[in-house]
Computed example of a mutant assay.
Amino acid sequence: MMLWFAMPLTALLYLWVKKLARRYQHPLVNPILLPALIIIALLIASGQDGGAYQAGTQPLNRLLELAVVAFALPLYQQAAKIRQQLAPIVLCCSLSALISVGTTLVIGGILQANPELLASIATKSITTPLAMSVSQAMGGIPAIAAGLVIIVGMMGAIIGFPLLRWAGIHHPEAQGLAIGAGAHAIGTSAAAEEGPVQGAFASLAMVVSGIATAVLAPPLFHLYLWFMQ
């Protein structure tokens, strides 16, 4: 039964929470977080198979691929600004990837975490397909990597902009770069709703940070393993 109702249920929940978000303007009223929690609760309560739900939402997954490609539009619209600041943008996103992976490995070393687990969580701040591929190449568990990516993205979408404003960061380009580098596609979606400049720079940061993490994470992880021997 969940197979037939999966797509309309997902769409209706998203639209309902989206309406609530416009009304209440609260970071926890998030159109990604709340529908996900409701659907998880319904699956558990009804005993339905998660695979059936996933199969029922395949058309939405296809549309999601097109939506990700559509992130290129704000990049094109902000191309002049991006060209003027490309070098510092690449540097900042690369440093963000270095800090994200590095702090994960340092904290993991202090806590004596399992290397397989560390390889799974070191890619937490990049988009899901990249995170799964890179973590698997390092000996991690792709399912854990994907789960953490979703959690980090939701956290960024919920508290990212309130946290930036609380810290006194109001520049739209800086906001976009921070959200895109830290919360990948889910955060970029929230940034696009915040404004066209934030959306464009978040899209760029998501791409650059993903590439930087894919390049930096494996050698840093192997360096960590060598150091911990």
Rank of each mutant, 00 (worst) to 15 (best):
A190W: 00
L105M: 13
A72K: 08
Y14C: 11
P129F: 01
L164V: 05
M228F: 11
F5T: 12
L216H: 08
G187P: 02
M1P: 07
S100R: 08
A113K: 06
E173Q: 04
S189R: 02
T104L: 10
L73S: 05
W16K: 06
G199A: 09
E116L: 11
A119Y: 00
L164F: 07
M7T: 08
A70E: 13
F201R: 03
T104I: 11
G168H: 13
T128N: 12
I211G: 05
A143F: 02
M154F: 07
N61A: 06
A70S: 12
Q77R: 14
K81Q: 07
A167H: 05
A200R: 01
V68P: 00
N61Q: 10
Y76K: 15
L9I: 08
K81P: 00
H26W: 11
L3I: 09
V106S: 07
Q136C: 03
L37V: 10
L64N: 12
V69Y: 04
T123L: 08
C92E: 02
G50F: 15
P162M: 05
A143Q: 08
I144K: 14
A192S: 15
A202S: 14
L177Y: 05
L60P: 04
I150S: 09
I40L: 14
F227Q: 14
T127W: 01
A183G: 12
A122H: 10
A52E: 14
H170Q: 10
F71M: 15
A145I: 01
A167K: 07
H222T: 08
P31L: 05
A178V: 12
A185F: 00
I107W: 06
I99N: 08
L111E: 15
I179C: 00
A143Y: 02
W4K: 05
K18W: 09
A119T: 00
V197Q: 03
G139Q: 06
M2S: 08
L13I: 05
G47M: 14
I126E: 00
I169F: 04
L91D: 11
I151Q: 10
H170S: 11
R165M: 03
Q77Y: 05
I186M: 11
L20H: 01
C92D: 01
F221V: 09
I144P: 12
A214Y: 02
L130E: 00
L164H: 02
I38E: 04
P59M: 07
I186E: 05
I150K: 04
V134R: 04
A214C: 02
G51Y: 03
L20I: 07
L95N: 07
G50W: 15
E194W: 02
P219R: 01
G140K: 03
L98N: 04
V207K: 03
M138T: 09
L220F: 02
L95T: 06
P74T: 01
S100L: 14
A52G: 10
L66T: 15
I110S: 05
V149E: 05
N61G: 10
T57W: 10
Q136T: 10
